[in-house]
Design a protein around this nucleic acid. Structure first.
Length: 199
DNA sequence: CTTTGGATCGTCT
DNA sequence: GACGATCCAAAGG
């Protein structure tokens, strides 16, 4: 019995109600499932809200980042570089703006649908090997901001299929951030071909 | 293999 | 008006 209106197989909301530096590595080897597709999470980064100069939430709540200040277990989707979307799992208590950026997946099923959502000729390894790539492969866009990963109201959940997180994940500073470049809040599944090129 | 620059526009100052 | 939690193609070694 899971209770609480959880979608079948999805992680409980309590999973997300923790420090993003703990949630992030715990998300490795979980599955992003929905829209006829599934991918195993192989790379993540933690962002610590108002305490973190690199976080969108650092300078407080705005219209764009409002989802980060809401319930844990929702998806924060933002638009950047004039053409890309990236997706985060909101963590921690409400009003603190904590989140985990989903940086890369290993395709598991629905691969033909992912191919169809990416540019023609995209290789298997490049389907979901970056934060904007995986959003494109799953058809995640601005209307998915705020999607509930626990109830699956937008047909997107994170599920546990029994594979544990790696005991010894790779760990480094975060990619593409100018500020707080020293903190090692990026984790990945070592040896996985779908991890994005770091720095 | 690595490096560089263009694309493209919502958001906040 | 500046600048992205990026990606890709093209150019250079």
């Amino acid at each position: 019995m899971t209770g609480g209106g959880e979608a079948k197989g999805s992680l409980p909301r309590s999973f997300y109600e923790a420090d993003p530096r703990d949630v992030a590595p715990a998300l490795l080897n979980k599955l992003l499932v929905g829209r006829g597709r599934a991918g195993r999470i192989v790379e993540v980064e933690a962002y610590l809200g108002s305490e973190d100069p690199a976080s969108h939430a650092f300078r407080g709540r705005t219209r764009r980042n409002a989802t980060m200040f809401g319930s844990a277990g929702r998806l924060y989707v933002y638009f950047t570089y004039g053409m890309h979307f990236c997706a985060n799992a909101v963590c921690g208590p409400e009003e603190v703006g904590h989140a985990v950026l989903l940086r890369a997946l290993a395709p598991v099923w629905g691969i033909e649908l992912m191919q169809a959502s990416r540019p023609p000729g995209t290789s298997h390894r490049q389907l979901t090997s970056g934060p904007a790539k995986l959003c494109q492969a799953f058809g995640i866009g601005r209307t998915d901001d705020g999607a509930d990963l626990v109830t699956g109201d937008k047909d997107l959940v994170i599920a546990d299929d029994g594979l544990s997180p790696p005991q010894r994940p790779g760990n480094s500073g975060r990619v593409g951030v100018a500020k707080a470049a020293d903190v090692p809040w990026r984790w990945w599944l070592q040896g996985d071909a779908n991890v994005s090129r770091g720095r």
